[in-house]
Design a protein around this nucleic acid. Structure first.
Length: 422
RNA sequence: GGUGGGGUGUCCGAGCGGUUUAAGGAGACGGUCUUGAAAACCGUUAUACGGGAAACCGUAUCGUGAGUUCGAAUCUCACCCCCACCGCCA
């Protein structure tokens, strides 16, 4: 959410942001409501001030005088409640609109209509050259008996899956590896809730506009699509001292996505599933653009280092305006090489928000002068399974049908090669 | 799921319809005193919104929302959360 004062003072900037993000919101309509709203606030406040003074006087009156004053106040009360009702209706509409105003993308964000317009920033690693016909991850999973999609669908429905044996072990190894790396970098790791309240999703910018994406499981309970939500919600309504920042945390959780709008996409395999697991990095820092940019690069680097240690080829792209979320100022996707498709697939997403989320969640800190400020927030994937297994299995496959285990994961796997059992 | 007790400012804690501009502590900050410190004493100590160039003024906020009333921290209803015990349970 942006500050209404800022929107009021910079309507053109906001309109340009709406255009660049291909968002759908009428800024002038919002500003009109804001003006009406302020007018009504002024009126109701004046009425209430009258009421307060009159009530105070009544407390010192007695007898007939008192009775007359009370009767007079009944009328005012009536007028107040009408005005308040008027204000309530305007305010509701106003709030709904305000929640849909996008954050302003950074100047370095390229213009574009879809992820096809994202721009490559850098690449890393050597794409593998196979001396044999490489298989796709689905074939590998089946041949090595590492997954069960039929039974997955039986239990969980469309896009359901079980990971078995070494694929399950590999997942655990990856999470451990990610946690260990983050601990070393000073992050505090958490097992985070996936079950979250609506307010937490609104606060992080997933609702209201993305309600088709999110599974609703209770009156006000949802299954979150990322641990970012609970890791941010953790700090809702809190006030930090400047010295507490930056706050670097990571959360591991199940993640749920309904994938509404992508029914026909990637229907096979592990690429697009309704339920996956992820270690997410989250940072709260002081409200300074340079500081945000610094941490953005840092979080991106953390994930890149992880891929480098796994020796997976990847590239970093900067997302275009239309591919940014409502609150995101700038986003890098890290895409890992998928040999069977001869292309990179998104495995990480690194973004910063300035105070868009913290304003909604009311996460503040006291700066050096003791002034309260909304902190800045950022997040990036550290590792997400099972999607990363696609690249891992495909890049590490051997001619003899086995799959090598990346060096760094062997201490958890207890083996250097995955082979079909028996 | 059941029963009972609670949610008040940075913290502890009183208040249970108008004298509350939320008592009283504690902490923090500033000052007096002191060679310095402690103690003692004095003072300051919220947030959001609206108006204003500013000083400042107004409004709201005692878990959340609705209601009763001229007037609600205080009364009524619903909900959320916390604590204790019982039941069930990974």
């Amino acid at each position: 959410m942006l500050d209404i004062g800022f929107i009021r003072d910079n309507p053109d900037l906001i309109k340009e942001a709406v255009r660049k993000k291909r968002a759908d919101i009428d800024v002038d309509n919002l500003l009109g409501l804001d003006e009406k709203r302020r007018g009504l606030i002024k009126e109701t406040d004046t009425f209430r001030a009258q009421q307060n003074t009159a009530s105070e006087k009544i407390s010192h009156m007695a007898g007939e005088e008192r009775e007359e004053a009370i009767v007079a106040m009944r009328e005012l009360k009536e007028r107040i409640s009408h005005k308040e009702e008027e204000l309530r209706i305007i305010e509701e509409e106003y709030t709904q609109l305000l929640l849909l105003v996008p954050n302003i993308p950074d100047l370095s964000v390229p213009d574009g209509n879809s992820d096809a317009d994202n721009q490559e920033v850098r690449t890393y690693g050597e794409k593998p050259h196979f001396t044999f016909e490489p298989k796709d991850h689905i074939t590998l999973l089946q041949e090595l008996d590492l997954a069960d999609f039929e039974r997955g669908a039986k239990v969980s429905g469309f896009r359901g899956y079980f990971l078995k044996g070494d694929a399950a072990m590999l997942s655990l190894a990856l999470w451990q590896f990610a946690f260990e790396a983050l601990e070393k970098k000073g992050f505090t790791v958490h097992m985070a809730p996936a079950l979250v309240r609506g307010a937490t999703l609104v606060g992080t910018g997933w609702l209201p506009q993305g309600k088709d994406e999110v599974y609703k499981v209770g009156n006000d309970l949802y299954l979150s699509g990322t641990a970012e939500v609970s890791m941010m919600g953790m700090f809702e309504d809190e006030i930090f001292e400047a010295k507490d920042l930056p706050m670097t945390v990571a959360g591991f959780s199940s993640c749920f996505r309904s994938e509404a709008g992508s029914y026909g996409k990637d229907t096979k395999g592990l690429y697009r599933v309704h339920e996956f697991m992820k270690v997410e990095q989250v940072v709260l820092c002081q409200a300074d653009h340079e500081e945000s940019v610094k941490w953005h690069e840092e979080l991106t680097k953390n994930a890149e280092e992880m891929l480098q240690q796994l020796d997976l080829p990847y590239r970093v792209v900067v997302n275009c305006g239309a591919d940014l979320g409502l609150g995101q100022v700038k986003k890098y996707d890290i895409e890992t090489w998928i040999p069977s498709q001869q292309k990179y697939g998104e495995t990480h997403s690194s973004s910063y928000f300035h105070d868009f989320q913290t304003r909604r969640l009311n996460i503040r800190y006291r700066d050096a002068e003791g002034k309260l400020k909304f902190a800045h927030s950022l997040n990036n994937t550290m590792i997400a399974t099972p999607r990363i297994l696609i690249s891992l299995l495909e890049n590490y496959q051997q001619e003899d049908r086995s799959v090598m285990v990346p060096e760094v994961l062997r201490k958890w796997m207890g083996k250097e090669r995955i082979e079909r059992r028996k």
